[in-house]
Amino acid sequence: MIGIILAMAAAVYALRLSGFLLADASLPRGSEQALQFVPVATLTALIVASLAGRPDESAPRLLAVAVAAIAARRSGMAWLCILCGMAAYWLLRRL
């Protein structure tokens, strides 16, 4: 069992390290432009994957995400976005 745990740990660490090491390699032309969109694209994918993981609550979560996005755009403050999102989510879930 310990062996399996350590094998999983090695695999996950190798993955986390691979990006750091690949950064030095000369990447194909045009990939520099693509790299600047990695944060936007990955964060969007993470949000969508998380929402898709709870199909039983998709309506309150989608609406709460919309509320939180508006809060983030208007205020520019991360904590307000999280607070408004959670408040909207808990409120909508009770309806």
Binding site: V12, R16, F20, A23, L35, V38
Partner: peptide, 21 residues
């Protein structure tokens, strides 16, 4: 188990790349 661990963390490759850049 190891394959699933890799598959569930594959995005770490992109995050590491973006961080190092």
């Amino acid at each position: 188990l190891v394959g699933t661990a890799i598959a569930l963390n594959a995005q770490a490759l992109l995050l590491g790349l973006a961080t190092a850049r």
